[in-house]
Amino acid sequence: MAAKKPKLAVWKFASCDGCQLSILDCEDELLTVASAVDIAYFPEATRAATRGPYDLSLVEGSITTPHDAERIHQVRRQSRYLVTIGACATAGGIQALRNFRDVKRFLSIVYARPDYIETLSKSTPIAEHVFVDYELRGCPVNKYQLLEVISALLNQRKPVIPNHAVCVECKLRQHVCVMVARGTPCLGPATQAGCGALCPGYARGCYGCFGPKESANPPALSAGLVRLGVTEDGLVRAFRSFNAAADVFRRESELHERPNP
């Protein structure tokens, strides 16, 4: 008897769609993946929606509305494995910058009728709401890492995703260190690898798209950045971008924040 194909679902919360589009970006692998799994729920690519339970749910985006906070529980209940893909789902994403501001005030400024808008005051990662089996980092995710996670989980093994710093990727690619050689501030030493050291390859400092690496030491990095002339405000901004709400980065940014007068 032919084995039944595992059912894959792709869910979206507040995000830019870039991570789920990485699945469509697997051009050559796309039709192979599609033949190995039953794509049961993927509204961006198809109207078909097969009922759960699903063997693997990929979740993109962060939780920003009361409705989404309920919906993620429905997703969890229907999923054997739940994997978050990208910085929004894993750390709240760029929209978590609002966690440090007053959202009600935002809305009254941006929208003429803020009473039409229903939103939560914070953008939170999926793991704050439900149990997550695996978190795939990146803004956006690396498509090869995504393929690795899908095939690992469908084959009942642990995904092989490196959790060392971007610095290791720079060395592997023989990029000259932008911080040492040019004095360019760089988050590489505290950031998880995965992008292929993209920005240092363009002579720019890393800005932390993949979030904090395992056992990162941001205070030591901050001290180094201050020696390069980065101000306290600059430190707050550096740690407060695409992974602003990731614990390690959030704590570091708060340490350097001036108290409100």
Partner: peptide
């Protein structure tokens, strides 16, 4: 049915960060 609020949370960021932030 969702809102992310880019126009407000970019306030205070240096202008040269805008391309990378708004690309998101």
């Amino acid at each position: 049915t969702q809102v992310r609020g880019f126009e407000k949370f970019v306030e205070g960021r240096p202008y040269y960060e805008m391309p990378a932030i708004t690309a998101r």
